[in-house]
């Protein structure tokens, strides 16, 4: 058994203590602590299904060791789904039918949300670049692009949680 320790981390705005062995990935650690919205797709950083934000930056949690997030903040899709103020991306994905099998969806929303903070009025190219690390096999990305643009518009008009 490898060495275990408790790490302090803010997850979706809540301070948590997670125990993790030294060699555990953030993906496995989050899922072991009930964050099943973080999906395992390849465990090699190729597909983006496991994407989360660390201090607001999207990363593949399968390539991140859990211990490295000590003292930092982690955001998963659950963090975008604030009960009182869900992120406009969620409503836009629902409205435009951007979800099919849904397995890539959490990672795509995480990547898109980070992009929208940098680029409030994204072009197709901005979206394509932001989502280039997130594979989707069902949708052809088309309705995802539409939803991301709509969410950007809602945010520009002051909607959403910030």
């Amino acid at each position: 058994m490898s060495l275990e320790k408790a790490i302090s981390v803010e997850i979706n705005g809540i301070d948590r203590e997670l125990t993790a062995p030294a060699n555990e990935t953030l993906l496995d650690c989050l899922r072991r602590h009930g964050h099943f919205e973080v999906k395992s797709g390849c465990e090699k950083g190729d597909c983006g299904a496991c994407a989360v934000q660390i201090d607001g930056e999207p990363v593949d949690s399968c390539l991140t060791l859990a211990w490295t997030v000590e003292g930092r903040s982690v955001t998963t899709l659950e963090g975008l789904n604030d009960a009182e103020n869900p992120h406009p991306l969620i409503a836009a994905f629902l409205e435009h039918g951007s979800v099919q099998c849904g397995y890539c969806t959490p990672g795509i929303m995480i990547a898109a949300e980070a992009m929208l903070r940098e680029k409030p009025d994204p072009t197709n190219e901005d979206i394509a670049i932001a989502l280039s690390g997130n594979l989707c096999r069902c949708t052809g990305y088309t309705k995802i692009f539409t939803a991301v643009k709509q969410a950007a518009g809602v945010l520009r008009q002051g909607g959403g949680d910030d």
Partner: peptide, 9 residues
């Protein structure tokens, strides 16, 4: 099935 998937539930 859309809402459950779009919220990660």
């Amino acid at each position: 099935d859309a809402e459950g998937k779009a919220t990660g539930r």
